[in-house]
Design a protein around this nucleic acid. Sequence first.
DNA 1: ATGAAAGCGCTAACAG
DNA 2: CTGTTAGCGCTTTCAT
Lengths: 358, 358
Amino acid sequence: MPGIVPRGRRGPEVAGTGEDDSVWAEGQVRTITDLARLAGVSAGTVSRALAGNTLVNARTRERIQQLARSHGFQLNQMASNLRRQKTGVVGVAIPLGHDRRQQISDGFFMTLLGHLADELTQRGYDLMLRRVLPERDEDWLSRFSGSGMVDGLIVIGQSDQFERIEAAAAEYLPMVVWGNHQEGQRHCVVGTDNRLGGRLAAERLIAAGATRLAFFGDAEPMEFAARFAGACDVAARAGVSILACPTSLSVEPMTREIAHHLHSNAGGFDGIFAATDTIAVACLKALRDAGRAVPGHVRLVGFDDLPIASQTSPPLTTIRQDIAAGARALVDLLMRRLGGENTESLVMPPRLIARGTA
Amino acid sequence: MPGIVPRGRRGPEVAGTGEDDSVWAEGQVRTITDLARLAGVSAGTVSRALAGNTLVNARTRERIQQLARSHGFQLNQMASNLRRQKTGVVGVAIPLGHDRRQQISDGFFMTLLGHLADELTQRGYDLMLRRVLPERDEDWLSRFSGSGMVDGLIVIGQSDQFERIEAAAAEYLPMVVWGNHQEGQRHCVVGTDNRLGGRLAAERLIAAGATRLAFFGDAEPMEFAARFAGACDVAARAGVSILACPTSLSVEPMTREIAHHLHSNAGGFDGIFAATDTIAVACLKALRDAGRAVPGHVRLVGFDDLPIASQTSPPLTTIRQDIAAGARALVDLLMRRLGGENTESLVMPPRLIARGTA
DNA sequence: ATGAAAGCGCTAACAG
DNA sequence: CTGTTAGCGCTTTCAT
């Protein structure tokens, strides 16, 4: 007997037991065919009825739906998906290029993810989350897009994978990326104008009296690089110095690094631009511990405007990214791409939120 | 012509175009059958070769794998899943019973989610995230478990769905829940001993000199209720009062509510037990704004030990939950349940982290 | 070591 | 309005 053992035994490889056809008689209703038998109609009709197709007689339809409900019947999505060639699932990939532990726990990414979950749910899509370590798996992107498990892809952060994303975008339409926009790039990106954000931050610091700036953050990822570049633009124009102080995003090393920078460049700066609010909060604490007044001795500006930003004291002056709007845009654009459209990127303006630290 | 249009046009309902069989000749290699034709073997052999089955000749195997690689061939997971009756996907459900916006952006849940993603990835599982609004969808649990899209389920937080989860657990083995443990419950839960945590918090507050306690938080969800109960245990024994100050977890109302409680109970308490660190941080800020010294006038203890807890000033005294260990346990137990085992719940001990606020 | 064939559970075109 | 039928793309007997 080739093929698969029939009848409600979940798992095709289990061999037949020799019992006869009565097995499923009292068994639960697992397949549309079971239901069809119970209702005395064909599987096709059940399928249509459950889909609410008005072709099928209203009374029959209602009866079948009732039957389904009362037996706790669940359509097998996998089979349905296979047949319809769509999954109702959007993949969300988080590439962890540099800083392995960082991103997923970083306030910003998490908040974005939360909003994405909202937006997608609202449109009837499920969300499949995948963290990827690009150096362990070169092919992460095409594996995900080509898996047949997702209808489209949202990539959170370009990390150091800009080129790979570019390459994928050439062949795979339904993908939208959160990140930085680069002149002439091919993939559809949603993000904040980081360079402008950097400029706003530096301008604010200087307006608040800073004369020697420092940038705390990792300038490798392009989003951060752009923020740094923006700050440099302004610093250059204003004739003030700007010092790069490499700082990772994981809490543990971050604290250490900040303490180090503060110590070894004690007099080197009087204005700090932190690449993220997470870093800014850590700076604030370190400065206080070191007995340096904020904003008296040192001015401080963060980036993101996370919820904590308003909870520190003094509350953090920062550059706001509108995360909810970003999530909405990512999903909007993806939906349009799922519809075959080739959408443009969206660069959103950052906004200075002036609070107490600069 | 009934059934489905053949040959690489993704989407069965599109009608034939009249072109003849040459269509796929230069087309990309999409199915195992395409690959089989190229390799001059049968689909079965390709399937075996790609699975690394040693039954197939080593040379043929290598050749086929090479061919697959060079053509960027991706196995269709959906089809594979359907046939094998397993998905390699674990569902993660976040029921949002009371406080809609709350949980997903709450630091604790996000951190837990991050760790879960890590653990699951490591074991070769994908993670399907679903936020559910129980009042909009009574059947959320069985829909998810019965969808055929996941092999098992992790539920983050019981919210107000304890009974529904209990019911589901009776019929669905591969499910593990993060939350509070109730004597004699049926579903497998992983969580902290919240009541003990509440006791530790209250003890600390009293030891630090508090004589009238307040609990800030929503005592509805059972995890929080247990924390509150623990604090009450201690308060009663010590003969000090404890005031419940309902506080939601969403940032916006939270701030308002805290301000209100502080104002209207100005002299009513000198020790605050906050149900989460997020609330504690907001309290800290509100107290400072109100000119009340911490821990001088008011002592404060949080819960969770999120990264921010160490970043406030003074740094937060709090009750630590070991989130990473929790995630590991959730996944471990789920894996064992996927293997058919009926695992016990795990209640982890909380730990007081004494810092500056009490 | 390989091929042929029988489905996993569902959907939709076709034909009444 | 409903039944029949041909698959979606893959895996796994069974039979060589």
